[in-house]
């Protein structure tokens, strides 16, 4: 993991991006919309920090990207999960559930 970008919610951001891409290839804007809609507008990705995260994940080999042409004739970059990314998503999801269950439990009884 890149030490330079470790922030409290970094793990969550990665998880959300990976999860969003599980639906299929999409561009950065699409990812923000998917996350927002799926969380009933509760979760909002800080858009400025999403792109560094995307590039880092690509570097880790979890996602790949390719360029395409938009209907407005712009270059659009589409991101796609790799097999490695799918495994990473599974691991992260498991980890998230474990931790959040632990936190919920702690909140209940402490």
């Amino acid at each position: 993991m890149g030490r330079l970008f470790t922030k409290p919610l970094q793990g969550a951001l990665n998880l959300l991006i990976l999860k969003a891409l599980r639906r299929g290839p999409m561009h950065g804007y699409g990812i923000t919309n998917v996350v927002q809609e799926a969380s009933d507008e509760v979760l909002e990705i800080e858009e400025g920090s999403m792109y560094p995260a995307l590039h880092k994940m690509e570097h880790e080999g979890w996602i790949t990207s390719e360029w395409a042409q938009s209907d407005t004739n712009r270059r659009v970059r589409y991101y796609k999960l790799t097999p490695k990314g799918i495994r990473q998503l599974a691991t992260d999801e498991r980890e998230y559930h474990r931790v959040s269950a632990a936190i919920a439990k702690a909140l209940k009884y402490v």
Binding site: G2, F5, G48, H55
Partner: peptide, 20 residues
């Protein structure tokens, strides 16, 4: 909503170089 575009671009670029 996006925040500082230039900053985001630079951070993205930096992250690429540093990562490399």
């Amino acid at each position: 909503k996006f925040g500082n575009v230039t900053l985001a671009a630079e951070r993205t670029a930096d992250s690429n170089l540093v990562l490399w």
